[in-house]
Amino acid sequence: MQRIAVIDYGMGNLRSVSKAIEHVAPDDEVVVTHDAATIESADRIVCPGQGAALDCMQALQASGMAEVVSRTVATRPFLGICMGFQVLLSRSDENGGVSCLDIISGRVVRFADPLHDTDGTRLKVPHMGWSEVTHSQPHPLWSGIDNGSRFYFAHSYYCVPDESQRVTGTCHYGHDIAVSVAHNNVFACQFHPEKSAADGLQLLKNFTQWNGES
């Protein structure tokens, strides 16, 4: 049995994430926690998150979780989801500009307004719903998931990592955007695996079995 810590910094719905992991790893212990010692003793760490970048960064800092994430992120399998992906980058344009954790070099930017697809059709923002995710490189977390499977998205800002070789998944929304990255033992995604039905559960299951290597 291993322990999987879901970081609670007071933002958003953690229940969906923790319940989905419990569902795919019934023998593991899943703890939702803001206790640094518990996180540091966990075998795997999940950083979810919703809401606005400024609130999230402030909550991470106020709770001491920013430091804990920065310290633990390199030491064991780490999964960032949605805002938990965005905060790993250097900075976000949201809320007038927010410095983030700078674990993955890059920037979080807003979709253009108005946003148009390559054929000229207007696209809505937020990008809300199920989009096809293309595996831009193989990764253990894609195991058992068809290239091009749809995942659930709900976001107005997206990540632009500086190093394109880190990108593991893209989707097309007006243009190609990076929707997942891998960086050593970190895998982070813009979509919500916990809300993406069977393929999302498969990704979470893969995470619970991943040794942290690419």
Binding site: R15, K19, A20, H192, K195, S196, G200
Partner: peptide, 11 residues
């Protein structure tokens, strides 16, 4: 909502 969210993994 708690019950559904712990068993059904779509939005």
């Amino acid at each position: 909502v708690e019950e559904v969210a712990s068993q059904v993994f779509i939005p």
